[in-house]
């Protein structure tokens, strides 16, 4: 009872999504702090290497609902299963990846359980909370920390009274780490018919066209990222050229993605991926909190900007006061001439 639960997402290839493994790693630490167990909920069909994959992350119990109708994901049956399990098992904390799956179903689960939910947390911690009005102290709450209001503030949210305490977290925010390679938990196979009914299949999938993940900027050691200041899709070609000669990947801010300069899967920040490269070259990026949340753990940061007051400059190791279109060709030229 009152354990830490993670909803584990099943990938197109029927494995467990990275974001879920990252959440299990975080969940294990939260569970240790609270002295509780870590439990995983997996809903799908013919999930590959389920136990072998999950136990090393310190999972004590895997609740597995297996049925051909449960893969690919649809909202209603997955929601029903999680809601009924939560009513039975009374989790203290329940975490979801902030993916198109997690952000679709977690609000519905929270609404059904009448619980609070915080989206896109950039940090989760355990701490106490004092309610001044009622003079009540709540021990060991989950601090759900996220930028808010367009990134101008960082808010710490708590749910003093409702359980489970629920949050979604983007991929890459938490670090994936093996707890014990030989850790052993137990598998609880659910009787799916007890958890879903016919009404849960009101939505049918007519067609799916999902591409395999093409770019993996999360793992790149060098990232050349562009903001709205780069100006156009055409100008982004310079970033690709520099990334290419340096052996890195190209990333972007949300503004650049929204501006149509580059595809969404390269978006870095609170609503994109979080990266920790050795070198981060920020090109024309002013540096909103949401963007910095996705890259401020980078080893070295170079900020190229015509605005000397750009917030990005404040966290950079090198600041180049200049135009991206002027500076990048010089970097490319130097590198081409001086490396063999």
């Amino acid at each position: 009872m009152n354990n830490v639960f993670v909803y584990c997402e099943v990938t197109e290839e029927r494995g467990i999504a990275d974001v879920s493994l990252e959440l299990l790693s975080k969940g294990r630490r939260l569970a240790d702090t609270l002295g509780r167990k870590l439990e995983a909920i997996v809903i799908g069909h013919q999930v590959q290497d389920l136990e072998k994959t999950l136990y090393p992350y310190g999972v004590d119990v895997i609740h597995y609902a297996e049925d051909s109708r449960l893969f690919p994901f649809t909202t209603l049956p997955h929601t029903s299963i999680v809601v009924k399990l939560a009513r039975e098992l009374q989790p203290e904390i329940l975490l979801f990846g902030a993916t198109s799956v997690g952000r679709d179903m977690a609000p519905r689960v929270a609404s059904s359980l009448m619980c609070g939910l915080t989206a896109d947390c950039t940090s989760l911690e355990i701490g106490d909370h004092e309610e001044k009005k009622t003079n009540t102290v709540y021990r060991n709450l989950l601090y759900q920390i996220r930028p808010a209001f367009g990134g101008n503030i960082i808010a710490t949210i708590v749910n003093p009274q409702t359980r489970p305490q629920m949050a979604t977290v983007r991929e890459g925010v938490m670090k994936k780490e093996i707890y014990k390679a030989d850790y052993k938990g137990e598998l609880n196979r659910l009787d799916v018919s007890q958890y879903v009914d016919a009404a849960d299949f009101a939505c049918q999938i007519i067609d799916r066209a999902i591409e395999a993940q093409k770019v993996n900027i999360k793992g790149a050691q060098i990232i050349v990222a562009g903001g709205y200041g780069v100006g156009s899709r055409e100008n982004f070609k310079l970033l690709y050229e520099l990334a290419d000669v340096l052996g890195g990947e190209v990333g972007a801010t949300r503004a650049a993605v929204d501006g149509g300069f580059i595809e969404h899967e390269r978006q870095i920040g609170q609503t994109g991926v979080t990266v920790r490269p050795k070198l981060y070259i920020a090109c024309g990026i002013s540096g909103s909190v949401q963007h910095r949340a996705g890259m401020d753990q980078s080893g070295k940061i170079i900020s190229i900007n015509t605005d000397p007051g750009a917030p990005m400059n404040a966290i950079a190791d090198y600041v180049i006061n200049g135009s991206v279109l002027d500076v990048l060709p010089k970097m490319i030229k130097y590198y081409k001439e001086n490396s063999k």
Partner: peptide, 19 residues
């Protein structure tokens, strides 16, 4: 059910950058 425990302003800690 969600309560805002605290709001922090975004304060940038200036690193020693090479300009």
């Amino acid at each position: 059910p969600t309560k805002v425990k605290k709001i922090d302003n975004v304060v940038l800690v200036h690193k020693e950058a090479k300009v």
